[in-house]
Design a protein around this nucleic acid. Structure first.
Lengths: 131, 131
DNA sequence: CCTTGACTTAGAGTCGACTCAAAGATGTAG
DNA sequence: CTACATCTTTGAGTCGACTCTAAGTCAAGG
């Protein structure tokens, strides 16, 4: 079976992308997604390309990239060849924010572990600052 | 100089905690912060203890812990000794979410690097999927 | 033919987390 | 003694990101 031509309904797209059908339509409405193809009856049909774009955008969302920034990237994609440098710059900037998010989380992890250790100590009848 | 007795105004507290005065009052209003001390004129005065609690809570916020969960922790703190086990459980649960956030971010980082590499390849006149 | 179910749109509603505004009290400097 | 800076409260407004609703289209099954 050739999967390259498989077109998904909005329901199916929602399932595979872990977004709601509401959100898929919302994203398209605000120009965050390129308009997807339509069946003869006007229903949306999602290609594998659409799906993989959505999955990527979704990952970026989950790392805290605001919708407007994603929008900007998608517009550049739409604009074509001439925008590769700019798109690359967006990715590199986002890379840096992800790196510092990881660093901050690791620092927080240490703080949490320290506090958990305090509770462990207390359970051994020792005095510590709990705050 | 003995810093143990230094009381900060809300302005000063905002500066050292990196929150706005609005947010400090808002947090107290919704019961996320224990009520702080007051000067004779009714103005808030933040102790070093208050400050360090606020800094902790703020770190948790930044790791995506919703205000209601933080609220729950603060209520337990207020309730005292008997709640240490429960507080510890909250910390341990949050520890796990932070760990998986780090893992997800690292996976995303790989994705970003892969895409950046694609752009690098393209700059060398090669064909790749850019989405 | 009629119902059912999956889709369509545009607009309204919700939610979390602030953020601001209005009206008033108090303390200090000129 | 008055101006002003800084605080107080309560309630309203904003913002980002959905999430839902209403009203309508269309195809297939009974």
């Amino acid at each position: 079976m050739d999967t390259s031509q498989v077109q998904l309904t909005i329901q199916e797209a929602a399932e595979v992308t872990d977004l709601s059908v509401h959100t898929l339509r919302y994203y398209e409405r605000i120009g965050l997604l390129l308009p997807v193809g339509r069946a003869a009856n006007g229903h949306r049909r999602y290609s594998q390309q659409d799906i993989s774009l959505i999955k990527s955008l979704n990952k970026w969302r989950q790392t805290g990239m605001p919708l407007v920034d994603i929008q900007r990237y998608v517009r550049l994609l739409q604009a074509g060849e001439s925008t590769t440098a700019e798109r690359r710059a967006i990715l590199e900037a986002h890379r840096e924010t992800v790196v510092s998010q990881i660093e901050e989380l690791q620092a927080t992890l240490q703080l949490i572990d320290y506090k958990i250790q305090n509770y462990t100590d207390i359970e051994k009848q020792q005095e510590k600052v709990l705050v």
